[in-house]
């Protein structure tokens, strides 16, 4: 894995992106704005599942009407996040919060697919004004917690001096 990161780090296009004055602020700003679109809409979907808000909106309306926008935000977020990683791979390789964020995104994705292919299939039975099953509410809580943790670990990536001691002892970034 390290050699892959080092290989990317030495690519001329990675160096060019890293040395550009405007690339980093532009990519990071678009990354934050697209995060607002994606995470903001997903948060209200999750809160609808949990029963915190939008109770009069049929559950099935939200994926149909809001997910295309949320996925657009996610797509832009992935592209800008990928470019940020591409421009400074060795900065992130040894960063605990980067790997924690990747792991949390993976678990959030698994939770989303599990919900979509298992629990959501029976949505017609609890779509409008009926009690949302425990599995769906749990998936909503898990998703809320996981995406909040993704946002937090993403912000913490800037604090390379605040990584856990046990991680520093591994000397991954050295």
């Amino acid at each position: 894995m390290r050699s892959l990161f080092e290989w990317v780090d030495a690519l001329p296009s990675s160096i060019a992106l890293r040395e550009s004055l405007n690339a980093y602020p532009t990519m990071l700003t678009i990354h934050v704005v697209s995060m607002c679109l994606f995470a903001g809409l997903i948060a209200f979907w999750d809160m609808r599942l949990v029963g915190l808000t939008l109770k009069k909106v049929p559950v099935s309306n939200i994926p149909t009407r809001l997910f295309p926008w949320a996925l657009t935000g996610y797509g832009v977020n992935l592209i800008t996040g990928g470019l940020l990683l591409y421009s400074q791979p060795m900065r992130y390789y040894g960063n605990f919060y980067f790997w924690a964020k990747m792991a949390l995104m993976l678990v959030a994705g698994i939770n989303m697919f599990w919900f979509h292919y298992a629990t959501y299939k029976s949505v017609q039975a609890w779509d409008e004004g009926r009690e949302i099953p425990l599995n769906a509410r749990l998936a909503g809580v898990v998703s809320l917690v996981l995406w909040a943790a993704v946002v937090i670990t993403g912000r913490m990536m800037a604090y390379s001096g605040l990584m856990p001691g046990w991680w520093n002892n591994l000397n991954i970034g050295a």
Partner: peptide, 9 residues
């Protein structure tokens, strides 16, 4: 994120 979601919807 919460603010953005509430405004965007």
């Amino acid at each position: 994120v919460g603010f953005a979601g509430a405004v965007l919807v």
